[in-house]
Simulated scan of single mutants.
Amino acid sequence: MTAVTTALTLDDVHRAISAHGDNPSAFLALNSGNSYFSVPGLDGVIVYRTSGPFLVQFGGPFTPADRAPELLRSFVEFAAEQGRGVVSVQVQQNEVGLYAEEGFTVNQVGASYAVDLARFTLRGTRFMQLRNKIARAARAGLTVVEGTLREWADGVAAVDRAWLGSKGEHAHELEFLVGQMGGPAQDHRRLFVGLIEGEVVGYISYSPAYGSRPGWLHDLSRRMPGDVPGIMESINQAAISTFTAEGAEWLHFGFTPFTSLVPETESPNASAAFGWFVQWLWEYGDAVYPAQSQLAYKQKWAPHAVLPEYIAFHGRAQAGGLVHVFKAAKAV
């Protein structure tokens, strides 16, 4: 068994996630800074980062379903050879049984949200506030265009600086569980920018989504601090119109931790104590991650699918494993 960090190309990883991934966030596997594990002769890859005593795995094994147990088992052995444990995040519902059979404790840790573009509409009273925000942004002079990062690099960088500055002097950018701008996979992404008087005031980056609900992932989104409402909503609506005209099927809003936690979607072998802890983080963990405000934005679009996502600990569940997930993402 070998961790193939240098032999695997980004194209190899891209092929694996597009062929075998049913995780709407799978494209994040291509982020700079990730490591990749594979077994010679076995089609597939595991994506991970090292954090303290853990290898933090992103998503499930990107491999044919009948080879997933072998690849996951080999990865656990690879971690053990280093004296490390494995914690896996954004495990999908159809992978819960796989992880349980391989000795993992599995708990729901949040959910992702998706809109069926064939059914999406802004008509009706439930979207009145959203339509009003979009109209106010238009009255403020906002226009939305699609372009490339090369075209809008200076404006995007200015938004990033202002956005990060508004978060406080100790704020830093998240990684791993969110997308990135730039890097070798940038040409696969779509960029929509909002302009007022020719200046970039906000942007949203969209990544391809594969699997049973193909389409696009609403990924990195930022705006200039200010009083103009509806900037992000206007950008996203313009992107939805474009994607729908192109025949895209789904728009995914990505993973939000600590949300949509209900008994019906909990894992059969979940840790009750860890489940209580995740519920506590939903109510009081805003300093760790602003889950409630993130969910509020996603619910504005009335998602048609709520997809539970899970965290899996090899062995027993432990809060330290979750801490290292967030350390790998630079959230703490």
Results as ranks from 00 to 15, higher is better:
172 H>W: 03
195 L>C: 15
179 G>N: 00
188 H>K: 09
140 A>D: 14
173 E>Q: 09
134 I>V: 04
221 S>W: 05
190 R>S: 05
144 V>P: 00
145 V>F: 11
241 S>E: 14
221 S>D: 12
126 R>K: 08
170 H>F: 05
219 D>G: 04
163 W>Q: 07
134 I>G: 01
156 V>N: 04
202 G>D: 06
126 R>H: 11
135 A>W: 08
169 E>H: 04
207 S>P: 03
197 E>M: 07
129 Q>Y: 06
189 R>E: 00
192 F>A: 13
190 R>P: 01
231 I>E: 00
173 E>W: 06
164 L>C: 13
160 D>H: 05
168 G>M: 04
203 Y>K: 14
153 A>K: 15
138 A>P: 08
147 G>C: 07
178 V>M: 03
186 Q>S: 05
154 D>A: 13
233 E>I: 08
232 M>E: 10
232 M>A: 08
204 I>L: 10
126 R>D: 07
195 L>A: 13
244 T>V: 10
135 A>K: 14
192 F>P: 03
196 I>A: 12
218 H>I: 03
218 H>W: 13
235 I>N: 10
203 Y>S: 13
216 W>S: 00
194 G>A: 15
230 G>S: 11
197 E>N: 15
137 A>D: 13
233 E>T: 05
201 V>H: 03
228 V>S: 13
247 G>M: 02
189 R>I: 01
189 R>Q: 09
174 L>I: 02
158 A>D: 15
153 A>Y: 15
174 L>H: 05
173 E>M: 04
145 V>C: 08
127 F>P: 08
173 E>S: 10
245 A>S: 12
243 F>I: 01
130 L>C: 09
245 A>N: 08
237 Q>D: 15
183 G>Q: 05
136 R>N: 12
228 V>H: 13
123 R>G: 04
150 R>S: 15
166 S>L: 10
226 G>I: 14
139 R>C: 03
233 E>H: 09
181 M>H: 08
